Computed example of a mutant assay.
Amino acid sequence: MGYFVEVEPDVNLYVEDVNPEGRKTLVFIHGWPLSHEQFEYQFNILPSMGYRCVGIDWRGFGKSDRPWHGYTYNRLADDIRTVIDTLELDGVTLVGHSTGGAIAIRYVTRHNGHGVSQLVLVDAAAPVGFTEDTANSLLEQTLNDRPKMMQGVTDTFFFQSISKPFSDWFNQLGVRAASWSTAAVIHLLRDETLYEDMHNIHVPTLIIHGVHDKVIPFEQALELHQNIRNSQLVPFEFSGHGPFWEEREKFNQLLMEFSS
C-alpha cells in the first residue's frame, strides 16, 4: 500500500509499504535523484520471503511533496525519524543507497539509532559525496539540460549492460524529481561530509559496494569499513553503482541473511 506521512506543515513524504505483516521490516532510502522505485527488484522478492518492505521518497523526489527548503542531511534524517515514529517501527534494517546511505548514516548518529537494529550501506556517498568539479558540472547540466544530465548519470551508473527500455525507465525515475531539489542535493553532496558520523555508528553495519563503481569509488567503502565499528564489507565484483539490480539475487540474499 502507499500513503503519505506529514513530516512538517505542508510537507508530506510518500511511503510504499509492502507486506505490513512481515516478520522483519526493511526500510529503504533511495539514491539521488531517484525514488523508492529503484528497489523494484527487492520489493518483488523480499515480501514473498516474509519481509516487510518500506520505501520512502525523500522530500522533492519521487511522489513526495516538493518544498523549496530542507535539503540538508539533518533535515532529511529528521524526515526519516518522523516516518519511523508515525509507522511505529522498531528493530528495522535501514538500507541506504548512495546519497540515501549518507542520509542513513546521519539518521543513525543524529537519532542514536532510534528504531534501527541493523544498517546496510549500499555504495554510500560517504564520508564524502561529489568533488567540487563533479558537482559544478552536474549543477550546470541540471540547470540547463536536466534530461541530458540524467542520461549521463545512467550511462555511468551500471557496470553490466542494460537494455534501452531499462535505461529509459531509469531515466524517468530521475527526471520525476523537482529540478530545484535535484540541484539542492548536488550542493549537499559537495558541501557536507560525514567524517565524524562514521566514528559514531553503534549498530551492526553491512557495507555493500560495487567494485566497478564510477560514481562513488570503492575506496570510500574501504574507508567506511575501517572507521565503522562492527562493520563488514562485501565487494560486489560484477557491479558498478547499482548492485541492487546488477547482482540482485546476491544482494537480496545478503539482505535476508543480515536481517535475520
Rank of each mutant, 00 (worst) to 15 (best):
A124T: 06
P67D: 11
T82L: 10
K63D: 08
D155S: 15
S98W: 01
V108N: 06
L139A: 07
N74S: 13
S64F: 10
D123A: 05
Q151L: 06
R146H: 08
G129M: 01
L94C: 14
G113A: 05
H97Y: 11
T134P: 00
G152Y: 06
D79T: 05
D145V: 06
N144E: 09
G60R: 04
V108H: 08
L121S: 05
A135S: 14
D90A: 09
N74I: 08
H114F: 13
D145R: 06
R75F: 03
A135K: 10
G62F: 05
V83C: 02
H114C: 02
A104E: 05
V83D: 06
M150K: 03
V128N: 00
R110Q: 14
T134F: 07
D85W: 03
G60P: 13
D155C: 03
V95K: 11
K148I: 04
G129S: 01
K63F: 11
H97W: 15
V120H: 07
Q118H: 15
Q118Y: 08
D90W: 01
M149N: 05
G62K: 00
T154D: 11
G129H: 01
D65F: 09
Y73K: 04
R110M: 06
A77K: 03
P67V: 10
D85V: 04
D155E: 12
T72L: 00
Q151A: 13
D79S: 07
A77H: 08
I105L: 12
T154H: 09
W68S: 00
F159M: 07
R110K: 13
R59L: 07
T99F: 08
